[in-house]
Deep mutational scan, measured.
Amino acid sequence: NQESVVAAQLIPINTALTLVMMTTRVVSPTGIPAEDIPRLISMQVNQVVPMGTTLMPDMVKGYA
C-alpha cells in the first residue's frame, strides 16, 4: 500500500511547506504520494490544513 503525505500539524493558509509539517501514512483515499515530499518543500497550501489531514493535489499551489 502506498503512503500519502499527511499534515503533521495545523498548516495555516498560504504557508510554505517544510519537512517538519508533513508525515506519511497509508490512507484512503490516497493523496499526494510520499515520494513527492521533496517536491512539496517550499510550496504553499491554498487552504487551512488541519493536523492529520491528507494533502491532496488541489490543496498545494502549483502542484497539480
Rank of each mutant, 00 (worst) to 15 (best):
M21C: 03
Y63C: 03
P29E: 11
M43T: 05
A8K: 09
E35Y: 11
V48P: 15
T23M: 15
S4A: 03
Y63L: 11
R39V: 13
G31Y: 02
V45W: 02
I37W: 04
S42F: 07
P57V: 06
R25S: 11
T18M: 07
L19F: 12
M56F: 07
E3S: 09
D58R: 12
D58L: 07
N46R: 09
A7E: 01
P38C: 03
G52V: 02
S4Y: 06
R25K: 15
P50N: 09
V27W: 03
Q47G: 06
M59I: 03
K61T: 15
T23E: 11
Q44S: 12
E3F: 13
K61Q: 13
L19P: 15
M43E: 05
A64F: 07
V6E: 04
L40H: 00
M51R: 15
M21G: 02
P38T: 08
D36F: 15
T53A: 06
I32S: 01
P50A: 14
A16S: 05
M21P: 00
M21Y: 13
P57E: 05
S28T: 15
P50Y: 15
N46Y: 06
A64R: 02
T18I: 05
Q2S: 10
N46C: 04
A64N: 13
G62W: 08
I11T: 01
I37K: 14
L19Y: 11
R39I: 07
Q9T: 15
I11E: 00
I32M: 03
S4N: 02
M21K: 04
M43C: 03
N14W: 08
N14F: 15
E35Q: 12
I37C: 03
L40R: 00
M51Q: 15
A8N: 08
M43I: 08
T53R: 13
M51S: 11
M56Y: 07
E35I: 15
G31I: 03
L55M: 14
T15A: 13
T30F: 13
P12A: 12
I37N: 01
P50H: 15
V60T: 01
T53M: 10
V27K: 12
V27S: 08
L19A: 07
P50C: 05
L55N: 01
M22S: 00
V6L: 11
Y63F: 13
M21E: 03
Q44P: 09
P50M: 11
A34Q: 09
P12Q: 10
G31E: 02
V45R: 00
M43A: 13
T30C: 04
T30Q: 09
T15W: 04
P29G: 11
P57I: 05
T30L: 13
E3A: 15
R25Q: 15
E3Y: 12
E3I: 13
R25E: 09
I41S: 04
V48L: 14
L19T: 11
Q9R: 07
M56H: 08
V60P: 00
L10R: 14
L17S: 00
I11R: 01
Y63V: 04
Y63P: 06
R39S: 13
K61I: 14
N46A: 11
P29V: 13
I11W: 02
A16G: 12
V60R: 00
I37E: 04
V27F: 02
A16D: 05
S28E: 15
V60M: 06
Q2F: 12
S28Y: 15
G52S: 08
V60F: 10
S42G: 15
T30D: 06
L17R: 00
A34G: 08
V48M: 14
M56A: 09
L10F: 09
V45T: 13
T18Y: 03
M43N: 12
L55F: 13
T54Q: 04
L10Q: 13
V48T: 12
K61P: 14
V5N: 01
Q2N: 12
T24V: 08
P29C: 03
I37P: 00
G31A: 04
S42H: 09
E3N: 08
E3W: 14
V49L: 11
V20M: 08
A34P: 14
N46F: 04
P50T: 15
G31R: 04
P29I: 11
S42W: 05
V48E: 14
Q9C: 03
V5P: 01
V49Q: 01
T53N: 10
P33L: 08
T23V: 09
T30P: 15
Y63R: 02
T24H: 08
T15F: 05
L17F: 02
M22L: 15
S42L: 07
Q47V: 05
G31S: 03
M21V: 03
V5H: 01
T54G: 02
V6N: 01
P38V: 13
M43F: 12
L40I: 11
E3K: 15
T24D: 03
I41L: 10
K61A: 13
Q9E: 09
P33W: 07
V49E: 00
T53C: 04
I11H: 00
K61R: 14
L19S: 07
A7Q: 01
T15L: 05
V48W: 13
Q2C: 03
Q2M: 09
S42E: 08
I11M: 07
P38D: 11
R25C: 04
I41R: 08
M51W: 11
P57H: 11
P29A: 07
D36V: 07
S4H: 03
L40E: 00
A64H: 10
Q44F: 10
V60A: 01
N1S: 14
E35P: 11
S28C: 03
P57G: 11
V6K: 02
Y63I: 07
T24R: 14
T18N: 05
A34Y: 05
N46I: 10
A16N: 08
M21S: 06
V60E: 01
P12T: 12
T15D: 04
V45S: 10
P29W: 03
P29T: 07
P12D: 11
G52A: 05
A7I: 02
L17Y: 00
M51E: 13
V6C: 04
S28D: 10
L10V: 14
S28M: 08
Y63M: 07
I11F: 01
T23D: 12
T23Q: 14
T30H: 14
A7K: 01
M59V: 07
V45N: 02
M59S: 03
D58H: 14
A64L: 09
M56S: 09
A8T: 10
P50Q: 15
N1I: 08
M22N: 00
L17C: 01
V20H: 13
A34D: 05
M43W: 04
I32V: 11
M51P: 10
Q9K: 11
Q2V: 12
T24P: 14
I13G: 15
I41G: 02
M59N: 04
V26I: 14
M22C: 03
M56V: 12
E35H: 14
M43V: 05
M59G: 02
K61D: 14
R25N: 08
T24M: 08
R25H: 08
Q47T: 11
G52W: 13
D58F: 10
A8V: 07
